[in-house]
Amino acid sequence: MESELKDLNHSNRKEERALLKSESDVVAAIEELDKKFAPYARRDLYGTMGLGPFPITEKVKLGFAMVTLVPVRFILAMSIMLLYYLICKVFTLFSAPYRGGEEEEDESGVVFQEDYAHMGGWRRSVIVRSGRFLSRVLLFVYGFYWIHESCPNRDSDAKATSDEIDEKGEGVKEEAERPGVIVSNHVSYLDILYHMSASFPSFVAKRSVGKLPLIGLISKCLGCVYVQREAKSPDFKGVSGTVNERVREAHRNKSAPTIMLFPEGTTTNGDYLLTFKTGAFLAGTPVLPVILKYPYERFSVAWDTISGARHVLFLLCQFVNHLEVIRLPVYYPSQEEKDDPKLYASNVRRLMATEGNLILSDLGLGDKRIYHATLNGNLSQIRVFHQKEE
Rank of each mutant, 00 (worst) to 15 (best):
E4W: 05
E4I: 07
K6H: 07
D7E: 14
R13L: 13
E15C: 09
L19F: 02
L19K: 05
L20A: 01
K21W: 07
S22V: 00
S24K: 14
S24H: 12
V27I: 15
V27R: 15
I30P: 02
E32C: 05
E32F: 04
R42E: 01
D44R: 00
T48H: 08
P53T: 02
P53L: 02
T57F: 08
E58L: 11
V60F: 12
K61V: 02
L62P: 06
G63Q: 04
F64H: 04
V67A: 15
T68Y: 11
P71W: 13
V72S: 08
L76R: 13
M78Q: 06
M81V: 09
Y84K: 07
Y84Q: 10
Y85R: 06
Y85T: 07
I87G: 06
R99I: 06
E102P: 00
S108T: 15
V111K: 06
R123F: 03
V128K: 04
F144A: 01
C151G: 01
A158Q: 11
K159R: 15
A160S: 10
T161K: 02
S162P: 03
I165D: 11
K168F: 11
G180V: 08
G180Y: 10
V183R: 04
S188W: 09
S188F: 10
Y189K: 04
H195S: 08
S197Q: 05
A198D: 13
A198N: 11
F200G: 01
F200Q: 03
S202L: 01
V204P: 00
A205V: 08
R207G: 01
R207P: 00
V209G: 09
V209N: 08
K211H: 12
K211C: 05
C221K: 01
G223W: 02
V225L: 15
R229S: 12
A231L: 13
S233V: 10
K237Q: 13
G238M: 14
V239M: 09
V239A: 14
T242N: 04
E249D: 13
I259C: 04
F262A: 09
Y272L: 05
G279C: 08
V287Q: 06
L292K: 08
A302C: 10
W303E: 03
G308C: 01
V312W: 05
L313M: 14
Q318K: 12
Q318H: 07
I326R: 07
V330R: 15
Y331L: 13
Q335I: 04
K338T: 02
M352K: 11
M352E: 06
M352N: 09
T354K: 15
K368F: 14
I370V: 12
H372E: 15
N376Q: 09
L379E: 06
Q381R: 15
I382N: 08
V384C: 10
H386L: 12
Q387K: 11
Q387A: 08
